[in-house]
């Protein structure tokens, strides 16, 4: 079979599609209702939930900041809050960018360029997210016992600290490896697409 034979097969699909029902006039009324696309915006994304958790975590540290009695803990607390805010901001910005439908009248190749650029930016954000998560792992492990029981974990329970940190680190290591493995492939494909569009 040659590629031109595919055309015949493709044409057969057209014949089948002609048997399909036409668009109902009521659909247009539904489309013009303001609720149609607002419904799309109510969609729950894992990123949105993640961002909310980050913001709640930052608020929790903020409300309990008085429990952090030394400069070391206060600096760790500020770093944690900043990281949590950055993580949530990155998530929300990413969602907003990915969700936006641009001008659909422009040529297809232009849309593909925008798509590829957005994808590259998204991958950069993912890298920043993973790096910040490593930093957050350390600061949270230091802060949690202090915030919940007023204890200094580093001096009072070295074993628990070592265990928690190791487990968290191992989890993040495997998680980031998995993320980067899939993103490396996507990145390569996106770069190839951009090269193709430039040629």
């Amino acid at each position: 079979m040659e590629i031109d034979d595919l055309k015949n097969s493709w044409e057969d699909l057209n014949n089948q599609l002609k048997k399909g029902k036409d668009l109902n006039p009521e659909v247009v009324d539904q489309l013009t209702k303001s609720g149609y696309h607002r419904g799309l915006n109510k969609i729950i994304y894992p990123e949105r939930i993640g961002a909310m958790i980050c913001l709640l975590g930052a608020a929790f540290i903020g409300f309990n900041f008085s429990k952090l009695d030394t400069t070391f803990f206060q600096v760790t607390g500020i770093v944690s809050v900043l990281v949590l805010f950055t993580l949530s901001a990155i998530s929300l910005i990413s969602i907003r960018k990915l969700n936006r439908t641009g001008d659909v009248n422009i040529p297809y190749a232009e849309t593909l360029k925008i798509f590829a650029m957005k994808k590259m930016q998204f991958l950069k954000f993912q890298r920043i997210n993973i790096t910040l998560s490593y930093l957050l792992l350390v600061t949270i492990i230091i802060l949690l016992p202090k915030l919940f029981g007023g204890k200094d974990l580093i001096t009072e329970n070295k074993y628990l600290w070592t265990f928690s940190f190791s487990m968290g680190y191992i989890f993040l290591l495997y998680f980031s490896k998995w993320v980067f493995k899939s993103y490396t492939k996507t990145l390569r494909q996106t770069e190839e697409l951009l090269e193709e569009l430039a040629s």
Partner: peptide
């Protein structure tokens, strides 16, 4: 990234 959208009633292209 999303759960199903608000469906348009009308069975467009339904066979």
């Amino acid at each position: 990234r999303r759960i199903p959208t608000v469906p348009i009633e009308g069975q467009f292209l339904d066979f």
